[in-house]
């Protein structure tokens, strides 16, 4: 069984309200090292067989068409996760 990971992040020019909220919470817990936070999404797509080039291509297409909305998000990485 193979696994493909698709990482989606809000576009850099779009303000990320969730990331901002997390960034504001961190110092309250003593984490003062981090100046900003952006929050994205990680999708794990599993296949029964091995992860082939075709599978990766399909995952990239799904990333662009379904898993992200290109108006507000970018697919930043599509890769096979080694188990």
């Amino acid at each position: 069984m193979g696994r493909v990971v698709v990482d989606v992040m809000p576009k850099p020019e779009i303000l990320d309200p969730q990331g901002k909220a997390v960034a504001n919470a961190l110092p309250r817990l003593g984490f003062t090292q981090f100046s900003s936070v952006r929050q994205g999404k990680r999708f794990e797509l599993e296949v029964d067989g091995p992860v082939t080039e075709e599978i990766l291509a399909a995952a990239r297409e799904a990333g662009e068409k379904v898993l992200s909305n290109p108006v507000i998000e970018d697919v930043v990485a599509v890769y096979e996760e080694q188990s």
Binding site: P10, I14, L15, P17, Q18, A21, N69, V71
Partner: peptide, 11 residues
């Protein structure tokens, strides 16, 4: 329709 909606600015 063009554009999209994200979380309210004030969360």
């Amino acid at each position: 329709l063009p554009g999209s909606m994200i979380k309210n600015e004030h969360l």
